[in-house]
């Protein structure tokens, strides 16, 4: 059976995936431009994209590294403010959003490095506590830094306004795709396996010669980078930022998406980020109960399926196609046998 298993060659897999993604982008973009999808719905779709990036990147810390970071919104905030300040100064052009995103991502990654190095040396719950503290500190600093130091930088509670509204459906989802691709390819490499080995058994990882501290930090920094990128998209999406949107509850919201989807499953994160963003937006009246609903959902999932809805399952179109191809063949064979 093994020898007969038909495999789709790598270039064909890439072609299929790229083609489908382009079709998806073009179709949805067309629907939005022709106003078949309403403006407010297109806004929700963009928010879904931003939340997918947040969930998929947090998944590196929770799902792949097996840690419990509670300050993802902090990295998002750093990226959002850094890129917003930059974008305000360079004005709107087609380059604004890529430059803003890369800058936002890098600043967030730098913060990830600064927080990660001491935090990841500690074991167990310390990382949760330190990242939780970090998130709150960022929020408070963004709120007060102008008053204290006399800057005109973040405008505190008065909000940072007039950010170029550069975020579109197209650039959001191109970034979503790049993010998923980068994280996926990273995890399928020796570097990704090193990260997984730490989650599985740190002592065994070290005795296999894996530089555990380095790889923990790397995972954490990459996770922070994409949170910063998502923050940049968020800044260009709203055009206005206030520190209140990056509180502890935002971190929890992202964490719920990851846990619900299944820690370590990228497709799970994508699916639950989609559902958990779309549902409350569509049921507006229900939105204020969101936190209650999240908590309940989380409890229910923890009781009935602690590994999350998808577990560690990862979806691959090519594998599915291969399975279909091969199951058809084997069915054919079975009926042949039956006929004899």
């Amino acid at each position: 059976m093994k020898k007969n298993y038909k495999q789709i060659p790598m270039p064909v897999r890439y072609a299929i995936n790229i083609l489908l993604l382009i079709v998806f982008l073009v179709v949805v973009n067309g629907l939005i431009e022709s106003k078949t999808i309403s403006f407010s719905d297109s806004k929700i779709i963009m928010l879904i994209g931003i939340n997918i990036i947040l969930a998929v990147s947090l998944n590196i810390g929770t799902g792949y590294l097996g840690q419990l970071p509670l300050g993802h919104a902090g990295f998002m905030a750093v990226g959002a403010y850094a890129s917003a300040i930059l974008m305000r100064n360079i004005g709107a052009s087609w380059l604004t959003i890529p430059i803003g995103m890369i800058f936002g991502g890098l600043v967030a990654a730098l913060f990830g490095l600064i927080i990660g190095i001491p935090a990841l040396r500690l074991k167990g719950d310390y990382l949760a506590i330190i990242t939780l503290g970090f998130g709150e500190i960022i929020r408070v600093v963004l709120l007060n830094i102008d008053d204290v130091l006399g800057f005109k930088l973040t405008y505190g509670a008065a909000s940072l306004k007039n950010i170029p509204k550069t975020t579109t459906f197209l650039n959001t989802f191109v970034v979503v795709i790049i993010t998923c691709f980068v994280i996926h390819t990273m995890m399928k490499s020796r570097h990704g396996r090193a990260i997984l080995s730490i989650r599985e058994n740190e002592i065994a990882a070290e005795s296999c010669g894996i530089k555990t501290t380095y790889y923990k930090t790397l995972g954490f920094v990459v996770s922070a980078f994409f949170a910063g990128v998502a923050g940049s998209l968020y800044a260009g999406y709203l055009g206005i930022l206030s520190p209140g949107s990056f509180g502890f509850m935002k971190s929890i919201e992202i964490l719920v998406m990851v846990v619900l989807g299944g820690m370590g499953s990228m497709i799970g994160s994508v699916a639950s980020a989609t559902v958990l963003t779309a549902l409350p937006e569509m049921l507006r009246t229900f939105a204020s109960y969101r936190i209650v609903a999240y908590s309940l959902l989380l409890i229910i999932v923890m009781i009935f399926k602690p590994s999350g809805l998808m577990g560690t399952y990862d979806f691959s179109l090519s594998h599915l196609l291969e399975k279909l191809l091969n199951s058809k063949r084997s069915i054919g064979k079975k009926s042949e046998k039956g006929g004899r």
Binding site: E200, I203, A205
Partner: peptide, 10 residues
């Protein structure tokens, strides 16, 4: 290891 330490989920 005496008490096996594999990367069990992999």
């Amino acid at each position: 290891f005496q008490n096996i330490r594999l990367f069990k989920e992999l």
